[in-house]
Computed example of a mutant assay.
Amino acid sequence: MSSDMAEAIRGKAEPTELPAGSPGLFISLNHIASIALAHDVPGWKVEREALINGIIPKRYLRSMNSITANDQLKLLDSSIAQVGLGGLGGTLLEILLRTGIGRIRTADGDSFEESNLNRQALSTVHSLGAHKASAAINRAAEINPSVECEIATQFLDATSLPTFVKGADLVIDALGGLETRLTLQRSAAEANIPMVTGALAGWTGYVGVVQPGQTGPADIMGSDNAAEVILGCPAPAVSLFASLMACEAIKILTGHTSSLESSMLIVDLHSHTFEKVQL
C-alpha cells in the first residue's frame, strides 16, 4: 500500500475504548469508503492497512477480541467460493459479509418464490420473482461495501464448478438438495481447497468440514431430496446450521483447526442432541 494511503488512514483515526477497556483508535466506514475511492482500491484493502497500523475499522469493534485484529487481517485477505444463495446460503452470506471476508464469490441461478419467505434471509415480499443473485448484490452493498463480491446468476455443474472454485481459500457448500454436492466436493478436492458443508431437513441437519482427499458427507448422503421436501426447512434450523457453518469457515480462514474435519456434526433440535460422527 502507498504511504499516502496509510497517512490518510492515520489522519482519519479517532480515539475509542476497546472492549477490554483499553484505549485504541478506530476509523469509520465513511472514511474507509472515501479513502478507497480516492486510491481506487476496494474497501477491504483500506481496512487491512488500518489494522496493520493499529487502527480498527469501527464495524469490527464488537468482534474484538473474539476475532482478534490478527484474525481480522487474515479474514480480509481471504477469498471464499460459496455455491448457493437460498436458506443456508443467504444467511451465510449475511454473516460472512458482517464478519469481513475480503472477497466472496457466489452463485445461484434460482429466483425467489413465496415459499422462500419462511427462511431465506435474502427474500422479501418485494423480491419475489427476482434472481437470488441480484438480491445478494444489493444486500452485500447495504451490509459491507468493503467486501469484493462476485455474484453469478447461474446454476453450476461439473463443467463450471472447477473454474468457479479456482483460486479460493475456502469452498462453502450451501446448496439446496443433495444432487450437486458430491460434484462440488470433488471440484474442491481437485483444486486442493478445504470445504465447509451443511444441510438440513426439518429440525435435523449436519455440518462438516472436508479437507482435500478426505471423505465427506456427500460420499455417504446420496442424492435423494425426499427428507428435505417432506420435512421442510424452518427458519430457526436454517439459522443455526448456517451459523455453525460460518464458525467453521472463520476457524479455517484464520488458521485454527476445525474439530469437524473428517466428521459430521449431526444436530436434532427437537431433542437438543449434538453428535459428532467420524467419517
Rank of each mutant, 00 (worst) to 15 (best):
L61F: 04
P234K: 03
S243E: 05
I230S: 03
L25E: 06
L18P: 12
M1H: 13
V83Q: 00
R10L: 07
C233T: 13
I250R: 03
Q185L: 10
S78P: 09
D224F: 03
G89K: 02
S34Y: 03
P15R: 00
A135Y: 04
D4K: 12
D4F: 12
A246I: 06
L25Q: 13
G87E: 06
I35D: 02
A227R: 13
T180V: 04
Q185R: 07
V196H: 00
M1C: 06
G198S: 01
I55N: 12
T183D: 07
F164L: 07
F274R: 10
I32S: 10
H126F: 05
A242S: 15
G202V: 00
Y60R: 01
I56F: 06
M195V: 06
R105G: 01
G24H: 10
D4V: 03
G255H: 03
Y60V: 02
I95G: 00
E275M: 10
I266V: 15
T16D: 11
P19M: 04
A81H: 07
T273I: 08
I250S: 07
G205L: 05
P145E: 14
T91F: 01
I32C: 12
G43V: 09
A8N: 06
V83K: 00
I67A: 01
M221W: 15
D110I: 07
S79C: 13
V238C: 09
G54R: 06
C247M: 13
G232A: 01
Q185N: 04
L96P: 15
A189M: 02
C149F: 04
D4H: 12
T257L: 10
S262M: 07
